[in-house]
Design a protein around this nucleic acid. Structure first.
Lengths: 219, 219
DNA sequence: ATTTGATTTAATCAAATGATTGAACTATCC
DNA sequence: GGATAGTTCAATCATTTGATTAAATCAAAT
């Protein structure tokens, strides 16, 4: 009946039971979502007894919340630093963001659908826990985007438009990967090649959008 | 023990029990997904007895498949015709697609996450049933995109890139609507205004991408 | 009014699922 | 070796959930 300690003897091994369960949970949750995952799925995937899941994580919900938090944090953290670099241009930040996210999503392509389908209705607890608002709104990147608008005669439309375009072009293909693969008849290798092309094409497209003044406020 | 007929007396009313259940199922499935929905959820939403669902639709799975098929077909059908118009330019088709999809998604914003989260792994049965491949690959729009590439000296990169950009910019904001609303502090009205701005901005952006030759094959 | 087929309801079943229990096992310390 | 804290397992519980059943109700035809 005692609590498992974070620093127990076995837990300090590289692949402790606790970590194995967490990794299994990450894989299964990412693939099938909270409602679509059973605790027995996770236990089987981890090669462990069902009771261990409850012993270490006190239930499915708690385990899920840990996975969700770590997943979102990983997604934000991977670019947060670069977006606040005072010495890089908008274009450079675009290139870095595209590179980082395509790298991340080629490793873990299920993350976007996982986050978005679980957040469908109430994302409030995530926004608070992760500090999503500050990470984006307060970033140097957003400041640069708003300044860019001022340089031309007209104002820039909500910088949100620029972010949506950028993230949409980068993340959307991973979200629709099964459909793309199916419709276009692509295998893993071809999809990777497509996304590697986009590392070049997306920054080009964003440059064309900026330089074409396409994101200035509609008349 | 007899089968419910499609042309039964009651079913011919505008709001037959069968239709009420289907509409309820559509709302609940769209919002919570297959695994997250219980048959009792649907029955309650429809104000009906649980047994009726099984009487009319022979189970949760069957009902879901009907909803899924109709949803995807509605999504494709709404633009299929325009994409094959021989007399409109690429730019005009972009404008029409953006208008149509923003209209549709402002009415039913849950459709994209619904489709994408249910299709996560195996979209094959959808691709076959709906004729997704032919609707896209065989469209006049895709032909135009491939020709466009030939006009300049260089080849156009896979026209898929152009489609991803277009659909990403249009659909992505609806997918991330809860996050956008949360981070930016937007209410329904503000989000609608944002999407109405994008009716203008997205065609502009796609024009800038095309004219800036941003989608030509990477060196 | 009666019959007949279609529709609706309350009650129930069987399987799946999240969680718990108590015993067994292991490693570490004395 | 024995004590102690930590870990693992098989068995079981209580609830949820998809589905079924048998009876009741309704509507139209005769």
């Amino acid at each position: 009946m005692t609590e498992p300690s974070k620093e127990s003897t076995k837990a300090s091994n590289q692949f402790s039971t606790e970590e194995k369960i967490k990794e299994a949970a990450r894989r299964v949750f990412h693939q099938k979502g909270f409602a679509g995952t059973t605790t027995r799925d996770i236990a089987r995937e981890a090669g462990m007894n069902l009771a261990l899941l409850n012993y270490y994580f006190r239930g499915k919900k708690k385990l899920f919340e840990i996975i969700m938090l770590e997943t979102v944090q990983g997604f934000i953290q991977s670019i947060k630093h670069y977006l606040n670099d005072q010495d890089t241009s908008i274009q450079q930040k675009v290139e870095i963001l595209v590179e980082n996210y395509i790298d991340l999503l080629q490793r873990e392509p299920n993350i976007p659908v996982f986050i978005l389908s679980e957040v469908r209705n109430d994302p409030s607890y995530l926004i608070e826990q992760v500090g999503l608002r500050e990470a984006i709104l307060g970033s140097h990147f957003v400041k640069q985007l708003m300044e860019f608008g001022d340089k031309t005669g007209r104002k820039m439309a909500n910088p949100l438009h620029f972010l949506i375009n950028l993230l949409g072009m980068t993340v959307f293909p991973f979200i629709t990967k099964p459909l793309l693969s199916g419709v276009w008849g692509m295998d893993e290798k071809q999809f990777k090649a497509l996304m590697d092309e986009r590392r070049i094409l997306i920054p080009r497209a964003m440059k064309a959008i900026l330089e074409g003044n396409a994101m200035l406020a509609p008349s």
